[in-house]
Design a protein around this nucleic acid. Structure first.
Length: 111
DNA sequence: GGGGTGACCCAGT
DNA sequence: TACTGGGCCACCC
């Protein structure tokens, strides 16, 4: 599948590397992108996910407070719970599931 | 090339 | 806990 921009492709590349049972926030992804591209913001990552997130494990990307993507709460929650991601009410317990790509992953994204 | 649109974030109230 | 306002910036007309 061909993506419209290199930037969007990098976003999806990172999301695709999130392991089962772990999550990243939009803000964390934006930080990685700033390392790789020197640009990016949480807001933009959300926009990209909204448009092109269909082909990656989008449910492993949540807001900084653990909230799930608007309009997809039910499905995201079901998928995450099947991966044993802990919940506190309707939001993910980030302290126990936060994932950060290692150097190899980041270099692979840069490629 | 200018302006509107968000699956965000954070600090303040 | 819930709601604002300001900042943010790639994408799409």
């Amino acid at each position: 599948m061909t993506l419209p921009t290199e930037y969007a492709e990098a976003v999806l590349d990172i999301v695709d590397r999130i392991p089962e049972g772990r999550v990243m926030t939009y803000g964390m992804i934006a930080e990685v992108l700033r390392e790789v591209f020197g640009r990016g913001s949480a807001r933009t990552v959300g926009t990209v996910m909204s448009r092109y997130g269909g082909g990656v494990p989008w449910h492993r990307v949540v807001a900084s407070n653990g909230r799930l993507p608007p309009g997809h709460e039910a499905e995201a929650r079901a998928r995450l719970m099947s991966e044993d991601v802990p919940f506190r009410g309707q939001h993910v317990v980030l302290d126990e599931t936060r994932w950060w790509p290692d150097a190899e992953d980041i270099m692979a994204v840069e490629r």
